[in-house]
Design a protein around this nucleic acid. Structure first.
Length: 423
RNA sequence: GGAGAGUUGGCAGAGUGGUCGAAUGCGGCGGUCUUGAAAACCGUUGACCCGCAAGGGUCCAGGGGUUCGAAUCCCUUACUCUCCGCCA
């Protein structure tokens, strides 16, 4: 969430920048400022009473030791009055604070200055395009047909055992999954990321920490029996490692990588976009996360963008990088680059990665701070990116690399698959 | 799942109703000494809120209660540990 100080001191520019995300903030911002004023006034009032009360309680202690019973009893009465006064104010303060927080979490993160306005995906700006478009034969097959032709992914079986969007991977298909995961993790490790294996279920506090809650409550699977959510991305457990943590400045940047299954309800989606591997309820992803000093976090974002681009180069997939427009950006992000890979048989671009700087938006929620050289604590910046999400990579690999001899595996991946063709 | 014990500052660990935001040790930071380092010694060292400041307030797992006064007593939730059961 945004810092109160930011909102108070830059009311106009906060509203203006949120408008870039198509968020009409005026009313909410004014409400927040007013609630904060009320909070301050109420708190001051309460603290004055508590200060007096503390003073008297101390005096009573001394009076008792001196055996001055009468004076002590008189002071007790005075103290009771103060207590009643405090009791009257407390609920008001608590209510104000709760309401203030509820309003505060409704405000999205401010977009970075480089973010352009725009309504939706069409307005995203293509900032880079790379790789050769494969020339496909007339009879080129989409990946879901290749999947059944080579018997490597079984969607129907998934529907039988679980439901739509939960495929089985089989034989060389299963092995391809493992190969990609290992390849991605190895690349990240070489780039200095520390590998984690996180829990796949998280509590509500973690959901709030990274901003999935309360914003995307309905998008996560929820285990009511134990009050836990299935993670939509490893970002949640990995970033929440640092919830309520103050790190040392010289420990930055913290670079972590994690492979995990990801679970998304994707409520409301339908149509050809969800065909085959294009959109699943359960999928695999390797996620990179960095905790960085605010002074250098945008350099780090570029570095992470380059890391992802390199993965796609090594896989030989044509890709482009988009800078998301305000309207297409997530609630929590300040700047996001999307990576899209061209899927030749479907003749469409598939989003395979999203790399974002959240600045201190998540850190503020999580109270993730660092102590600088002067000994002051400051909110850190958090960043993350998919590096990479598997299903659409697999879709593009199958489609783009289909040959009469079978699916050709990219060189970089062969040491992991230990086969060169899916046939 | 059953029974019991516990949760205090970065860590270890004292504190069982008043001057305790909390002893002590370790660690961290600064200094003295040293060519440099180590050792030794000295000092310093939690977070948050309000305030220009002085200062005030809150926090001893979370929440609630008793009391003039709670780290300390009571209730409750979460978690940890031990034993039993179950189990990959």
């Amino acid at each position: 969430m945004l810092q109160l100080q930011t909102i108070r001191e830059n009311r106009a520019s906060v509203i203006e920048r949120l408008a870039i995300k198509n968020f009409k903030a005026t009313e909410l911002v004014d409400e927040i400022i007013e609630l904060d004023n009320k909070r301050r006034a109420t708190q001051k009032e309460l603290e004055n009473i508590l200060a007096q009360s503390n003073q008297i309680a101390k005096e009573i202690g001394i009076l008792f030791k001196q055996g001055n019973r009468e004076k002590a009893d008189a002071a007790k009465e005075e103290s009771l009055k103060l207590k009643a006064a405090a009791k009257a104010i407390e609920p008001e303060l608590q209510e104000t604070v709760e309401l203030l927080n509820a309003k505060l979490v409704e405000l999205p993160n401010l977009p970075h200055v480089s973010v352009k306005p725009g309504k939706a995906a069409d307005d995203n700006e293509i900032i880079h395009e790379e790789g050769e478009m494969p020339k496909m034969a007339e009879d080129a097959l989409p990946h879901w047909e290749l999947a059944s032709k080579y018997q490597i992914i079984d969607f129907e079986l998934g529907s039988k055992v679980t439901g739509a969007g939960f495929p089985f991977y089989r034989g060389k298909g299963a092995r391809l999954q493992r190969a990609l995961i290992n390849f991605f993790i190895e690349e990240a490790t070489e780039a200095g990321y520390l590998e984690y294996q996180p829990p796949l279920l998280i509590n509500a506090a973690s959901g709030y920490g990274t901003g999935q809650l309360p914003d995307k409550e309905g998008q996560m699977y929820f285990v009511g029996e134990d009050n836990l959510y299935l993670i939509p991305t490893a970002e949640v457990p990995i970033t929440n490692i640092y919830r309520d943590v103050i790190v040392k400045e010289n420990e930055l940047p913290i670079k972590n990588v994690a492979y995990s299954n990801c679970f998304r309800r994707e409520a409301g989606s339908y149509g050809k976009d969800v065909r085959g591997l294009n959109r699943l309820h359960q999928f695999d992803k390797v996620e990179i996360v960095q905790i960085q000093n605010p002074d250098t976090s945008y350099q780090t974002l570029e570095e992470m963008k380059e890391h992802v681009a390199n993965l796609l180069r090594k896989l030989g997939l044509p890709f482009r990088i988009l800078r998301l427009c305000g309207g297409d950006m997530s609630f929590t992000s300040a700047l996001t680059y999307d990576f899209e890979v061209y899927s030749a048989a479907q003749k469409m671009w598939l989003e395979v990665s999203s790399v974002s700087n959240f600045e201190d938006f998540q850190a503020n929620r999580m109270k993730l701070r660092f102590k600088n050289k002067e000994g002051k604590t400051r909110l850190a910046h958090t960043l993350n990116g998919s590096a990479l999400a598997l299903p659409r990579i697999v879709a593009a690999l199958l489609e783009n690399n289909q040959t009469p001899e079978g699916i050709k595996i990219p060189e970089a991946l062969v040491p992991f698959t230990r086969y060169q063709f899916i046939d």
